[in-house]
């Protein structure tokens, strides 16, 4: 009789693999996207099971939420609903088995190794200005990564703008959406603000908060409360650029006046981290909203 933990792990593992397979082999694209969103939610559950609540929050909001909205809006705009089914053959089943064994033998000894990093992070945690280790790593010890990540989000938006502009018009909302949208949007502000503020000493932070806010923005745009947003509006442009600009400004100031690139002066780290997180949240929320609901048609191909 297996104990409850193994039952849970086993069910979760099988569900993950089956959902991944179903997403790849569904007959219609619509069903594939639905399976993929379900897979995202199961992944969020897995991260929570593996003791990574930050990731569970991020996956539920980003992986399942925003990616699902992006996929659906692409389906709606491009109207693709054809799916050629692949014909499986025997070698195609044998090779993955071999590859699986090979990768498993490679990964087998990995848990035996011990990295000195967690102990170092714990030793310096009190100098970082925040008390949650993941936030400390993201915005202090490895702030470079986060700066580049915020830039990647910006570059993705700029790249999307270079391609064919999306329609900008949104489908007519159905009555339930109209009624709930107005109620949900203020809630996303509360939840987003809470996630941002708690991020300093508990799971949460700029990315999770920004995504939740973006969800509110998308809902408001879909029910027609927000006007079409676009790069040509200066407040939108300012919000999108704010995260990178403030981050680079802090980095440059610490490099010129302080001890080095992104080396915060002791005492003011908490203020700087909160400032960067606030601006990054605003940027991420605006950028993701733009990516999902698209812009008003301003360029004609």
């Amino acid at each position: 009789m297996p104990d409850a933990e193994w039952l849970f792990d086993g069910t979760l593992g099988i569900l993950l693999l089956v959902l991944a397979g179903a997403a790849l082999h569904a007959r219609s694209l619509y069903a594939a996207v639905v399976m993929f969103i379900a897979l995202g939610l199961m992944l969020a559950l897995t991260w929570a099971r593996l003791g990574a609540p930050d990731l569970a929050l991020a996956e539920a909001a980003i992986g399942a939420g925003v990616t699902g909205a992006l996929l659906f809006s692409t389906l709606y705009k491009a109207g693709m609903d054809r799916h050629k089914r692949a014909t499986p053959n025997r070698i195609a089943l044998l090779l993955p088995g071999l590859a699986f064994l090979l990768l498993l033998t490679a990964a087998w000894p990995l848990p035996e190794m011990h990295s000195p990093l967690p102990d170092q992070v714990m030793a310096h945690l009190k100098d970082s200005g925040v008390s949650h280790p993941v936030t400390a790593v993201l915005l202090n010890f490895r702030a470079w990564d986060t700066l580049l990540e915020v830039s990647v989000v910006l570059i993705a938006l700029l790249g999307v703008r270079q391609l064919y502009p999306s329609h900008g018009e949104v489908p007519t909302p159905w009555p339930l959406m109209l009624a709930w949208g107005r109620l949900l949007a203020p809630l996303t502000v509360i939840v987003g603000g809470y996630l941002l503020w708690r991020g300093t000493d508990a799971p949460g932070g700029a990315f999770q908060a920004g995504t939740v806010l973006a969800a509110g923005g998308v809902a408001l745009r879909l029910i027609g409360v927000l006007p079409p947003l676009g790069w040509h509006q200066w407040p939108v442009r300012l919000l999108v650029l704010a995260g990178v600009l403030v981050f680079v400004a802090v980095a440059a100031l610490t490099a010129w006046l302080g001890q080095g690139w992104l080396h915060y002066p002791t005492g003011s780290s908490k203020v700087l981290i909160l400032l960067i997180e606030l601006m990054a949240t605003a940027s991420i929320a605006t950028t993701l909203t733009l990516l999902v609901v698209g812009e008003k048609r301003e360029l004609r191909p």
């Binding site: 991020a58 996956e59 992986g63 990540e149 990315f207 990516l291």
Partner: peptide
């Protein structure tokens, strides 16, 4: 966390 955000972009 960084990877998730890059993946969605």
């Amino acid at each position: 966390v960084t990877g998730l955000v890059v993946a969605v972009s």
